[in-house]
Each structure stands twice: as C-alpha cells, then as structure tokens.
C-alpha cells in the first residue's frame, strides 16, 4: 500500500514537473516518471521481504519468493533510462547555449 501510494506520488510529481515551462524541471519530471514506471514493474514481480531466493541449506526455491524476471526487465529499463537522461541533459545544455535560457517560450518558431 505504501509503495503503491509512493509510486502514484512519483507519477503525479513527474507529470506536474513535465508540464512546467522550465526545461530543467521538465527533465527532472521525465526522470521521476521513469523511476515511477521502473518501480511499478519491480513491484509487479511480487514483494517478499528478507529471504534470499534460495535459502541456506536448500537447493531449490521455497515460496513465497519474488519473480526474478521483472528485476531483469527493470535493469534493462534503467540502462535505457540512463542513456536517455544523459541525452536529454545534453540537449538541454545545448538549448541553453543556443537560446540563452531554459524557458520553452524562448524556442517558439518565428515564422
């Protein structure tokens, strides 16, 4: 329950920040959203606190144990997210250089 509300909070904060005009805030929003989605997948595998997946003295899994596949998925998603955030930050840096600020209104098309 706590985790579910926390994920919801992350989504809310992410979308709120994404809707701001400031590009840096939008980037932070995108990062938060990414974390929220990753956590959601992580939780979808089931949570069981404490025990390692194969306990000492045993040679097979004893239920309840979390599904390991979502953890693998989350790892993939985190790696992709890292690349995308690095790109996003570089792009914002470049924008600030060219447009002289991080306000989206500076980028309106003059046509």
């Amino acid at each position: 329950m706590i985790i579910a509300s926390f994920i919801g909070l992350l989504y809310i904060a992410g979308f709120y920040l994404l809707l701001r005009r400031s590009l840096v805030r939008a980037a932070i929003g995108a990062l938060l959203l990414g974390h929220a989605a990753n956590l959601l997948i992580f939780v979808s595998g089931g949570l069981s606190a404490g025990a390692p997946i194969i306990r000492e003295g045993e040679d097979s899994l004893i239920s309840p144990y979390p599904d390991p596949l979502p953890q693998a998925l989350v790892l993939t998603a985190i790696v992709i997210g890292l690349g995308v955030s690095a790109y996003l930050l570089a792009l914002i840096h470049r924008t600030a250089e060219i447009a002289g600020g991080d306000d989206m209104d500076d980028l309106k098309e003059e046509e």
Binding site: A30, G34, I41, L73, Y87, T95, A99, M104
Partner: peptide, 30 residues
C-alpha cells in the same frame, strides 16, 4: 534554434510515451 525547439518537443513527448508503455508493461506483467 527551431531545430532544437522541435527536437525538445519530440524528445519530451516520446519520453512520456515510453513511460506510459513501460507502465502498461508493468501492469500487464503483474
């Protein structure tokens, strides 16, 4: 400047799309 402005729109909106996709994957897998 316009090219960068276009790229920002493209990147942010597509990031949102990826997050929605990922969320859907999480729910479906769960």
């Amino acid at each position: 400047k316009q090219a960068i402005g276009g790229a920002i729109k493209y990147v942010l909106l597509n990031l949102v799309s990826s997050v929605l996709f990922l969320t859907a994957i999480g729910l479906l897998y769960g």
